[in-house]
Design a protein around this nucleic acid. Structure first.
Lengths: 116, 116
DNA sequence: ATAATAGTTGAACAGTTATTCATTTGTTGT
DNA sequence: ACAACAAATGAATAACTGTTCAACTATTAT
């Protein structure tokens, strides 16, 4: 039996019971919200947008976004953990590229909400 | 002249200068990241998912998600501020409904990334 | 070898955020 | 008018997050 945290009874118990089994697995919801958490930062959005134009090394991204290399590197690490970008070392430089063609379509759909 | 925060020079100056004018307005990027910030919480994702099934009052949402009415109400306020849901008072109850048909498509595109 | 450069990393700090708790508002039924 | 209930709210707390700073690794050039 699951422990009750709710502090009230259902008004429309029948509806609640009907919907309950349709709710997706909690793990999927966590994955979804984690994905959006990664997108929910303007620096990371900038990085993704820039990398949509062209793959680039950390220093160039730092100049483009007017940030320190360190700050950029930290955020690229987050994007890498989310498998949204991939890194490729070339000499002293590390080139980052988009790893997921779905990002652009997610942007587009989000913009439809914003620009309505 | 914009103040420089970056702590290095561009490796590929030409590329940076080519991409710079293609970067979208900062205000748009903030709107985008704010939108994703709202989606980046598992409670709010649950609420949106539930409301996709049916409009519901606060108490029923609390029972369905096993949370307190207060916690649900706080998060609904965030969703309302983001214009993702709308509220309709009916007697003692307040019924919430999705306000944006784009949410589902954003979910779907995000799931394509997650489930690849 | 040494110096210079590109990038990464960890700790620290300030700012933000989600839930809890107690209180308040508004509505219905008696 | 009063009790009961639904929902909203504000303050408080704990947990989390992004940037900075300093230190470190790895690669290249002299």
């Amino acid at each position: 039996m699951e422990n009750k945290k709710s502090d009230c009874d259902a008004v429309n118990q029948e509806l609640v019971e009907k919907i309950k089994p349709n709710m997706p697995d909690m793990n999927l919801l966590y994955e979804l919200s984690d994905f959006f958490k990664v997108m929910g930062d303007s620096t990371r959005i900038q990085l993704l947008w820039a990398l949509e134009e062209s793959e680039m090394c950390v220093g160039d991204l730092a100049v483009l976004l007017n940030m320190t290399k360190s700050a950029v590197s930290h955020q690229l690490k987050v994007l890498r953990a989310a498998k949204l970008v991939r890194a490729k070392k070339s000499g002293k430089n590390v080139y980052y590229a988009l790893n997921d063609h779905h990002v652009k379509t997610v942007f587009d759909k989000a913009l439809e909400h914003i620009c309505e």
